[in-house]
Design a protein around this nucleic acid. Structure first.
Lengths: 232, 232, 232, 232
DNA sequence: CATGAATGAGAATTCATTCAT
DNA sequence: CATGAATGAATTCTCATTCAT
């Protein structure tokens, strides 16, 4: 939707408080922009621009200059908000993922039939990740994570491990209730998101050759994974 | 600060005739390299070094100088074999994947019970990709493919599309024989490799926090995907 | 061994605001350089340094690094003002010749006895070209013009063709007035500057063996060329 | 006239006279191609190729590799015949100009009416220089001479100074015979060739915009310069 | 003698980062 | 706080020259 993630960043109008950057981030600070707000806006504009540029070109190929132009600030200004390029990158990832943490924590609490859960899960992934700037963030982690262990670690500690834990708890209960055929998914909860990850990758690399329907694929996958198995 | 977390490639012993680089290359010619042989060796040494470096740092962060050092040749020598850094990268991908093409083509011909096929498939992936330098190549495609459309296209045309076609043919026959519950996998053959892809990603990013048993996960996945479904 | 016969431009004092570079540039703005002024100064310093270096070594043998040192700026700074080495070269030529254009245009208007004209012409050439940095520019055009068709074209279009046209107009009037014996110079106005060109070349190559008095030679040449001929 | 041109050439191979290189050079050493001949041919091929390339691109921009390709020899071979690139350049100039020396020496002896002499002179220049590879050599001297003082010196000592001396002798006799109005040309014999030089330059730079008839221009010039002046 | 693969010094250019205004 | 000109370290790529075959 939003994301000017193709244009070469010329005189791009500042994307202030892009709802896509922190979607649904209930910006509760009611009306009046405080002096603080100005600064926060700037910071967000920079982060939004950085996301565009990093997504488009990767970490190394991204020029701070282009981020600045896209954010409509001077190059030097970026250094007022971020120590250096790497910090910008890391904080970008953090900023984009942090809002997820709460949502994930809440996941474990939920209790509903597996079929419903599956639907919810797919829907959540598609709407909150795949159709969002977060898809780009995931892609960045996949692409650059190895070179930025801090980023990978943050993602693992704050997002992945929590999510896996929550999912496992959920599934364990389902298993106990007899809704699950075996402990496959408890041992490998990664299988649940695998199609989502692959879809993100595919979308970035091969969609022009052969588009892929994420929702359908994830749905089909869940159907299989959650099916109570009756061995042939 | 964290970016250079890998050793800076000093006087690394040349990885000559890496079996993973040119697998099965029965290099039986007695002693002295023929002129052709010497040159080919050199080329392979460079490719092997390039794979190491590119995998370690990514395309941009890799210095031709380091590739040269690792390959134990002078910087200029690389330019005798490859037009430029990008060519080196692209030819590396090609060189690593091309040998696969034949194997893939052969895949469609096979005919065996689905259970056996699944085992074979997992085994093939693990032994020929995951435990091989090709895992790194896949990672490179995932990481850099977007910035090198040629690479993505090559991978799609020569590897992916062929593989998908072969798999679909196989599955269609299985479906007709009644070995397959439905056409899910025919519509989304990507689901078969998804766990493999995720394993490669996980291995690169999170293995230090929580190792992942590829073989087991893929096996479990196949079991589920290939199960003749009996709806609850 | 002989090529580097000129000093390698170490910490050469900056030739700022060279009057020959920007002649007549009444730089009267009181004290502090305005932002524009500072930038313009820098640009001129670079151009002046470039002229020195290019004249000394030729285009290829000139190192941007040396230009920078001579201009007393960092290497990178040059790229803030000029796209690349070639641009620097071309803009240098342009900058040096452009001020001439107006003067040339005015030439055609003049009206005076041929003898006086000849004196004026010689004087003009010597004072405005030969004893000026423009002599070096002419030399650069002679030396590098073939490899920079743009430069040759610029020189032809903006300087040469205008000059030839003006001279022809002048001479045509003189011919009509009977001051000129025939149309030789109208057909070959190049003959008028030929001694000047040769003097520039000679000065660059052979003056150390046998100095040449430009003024005298051009004077003698004009005398002959303008003489109303009485066939023997 | 044994050119004492600098040091007695250490590693320099002998200088032979290629008919293609120096046309019309009566190859008097009749018949027999000695073993020496093979080698001499090679040398000449290299020189011819070098002339092509140097003329086309200038000294710096010429790659030894291209000279080798054009001469149809291996790169290394060039270094069997010439110490280095600069030697190749210098010896090229020498080889092309040396055959002229004899002709020039002979010039002073001639004795004929000035009108005839003028015609001869123009014809000689056009046929022996302008329409010859020597035009390129002159251009190379004009372009690169400053960076190769040795070359300029050689040209001055062996060609220019001799020529000027011969011309002066000739003109002095003409003056004594009353064929010459004054000593202008004796003081500035350069005026005689100036149109030729300018024509060479013009041809290289501006012929595409406005062609120039050398012969006509030189003829016109001589007519004027040799005219017995009758002051108006 | 010839070859051409290999070398590595060198040059152009880029861009993260700083800092005077 | 903001700016953006200036810096110079770093990197790619070229090409003269060497030397083993």
């Amino acid at each position: 939707m939003a994301a000017n993630h193709t244009a070469p960043a010329k005189k791009v109008a500042r994307r202030s408080r892009d709802p896509a950057l922190s979607p649904r981030a209930s910006r509760l600070e009611t009306g009046r922009r405080s002096r603080k707000g100005r600064s926060a806006d700037r910071r967000e504009a920079i982060l939004a621009a950085a996301l565009d540029e990093f997504s488009m070109r990767g970490f190394d190929a991204t020029r701070i200059d282009d981020v600045a132009k896209r954010a409509d600030v001077a190059k030097g200004t970026i250094y007022l908000y971020f120590r250096d390029k790497e910090s910008l990158f890391q904080e970008l990832i953090r900023a984009m993922l942090t809002p997820l943490i709460g949502a994930i924590e809440a996941l474990g609490e939920v209790d509903m039939p597996l079929q419903v859960l599956a639907e919810r899960f797919v829907d959540l992934f598609v709407r909150e990740v795949y159709e969002t700037r977060r898809r780009d963030v995931i892609r960045l982690i996949l692409s650059e994570g190895r070179r930025f262990p801090k980023v990978a670690e943050f993602y693992y500690r704050e997002v992945l491990s929590r999510m896996l834990k929550a999912v496992r708890a959920l599934l364990r209960r389902a298993l106990e209730r007899g809704e699950l055929a075996d402990d496959t998914l408890i041992r490998f909860p990664q299988l649940l998101v695998a199609p989502g990850i692959v879809a993100i990758v595919w979308n970035g690399l091969f969609d022009r050759f052969e588009p892929l329907d994420v929702r359908a694929m994830m749905g089909a996958s869940c159907e299989r994974l959650f099916a109570a198995r009756r061995p042939t």
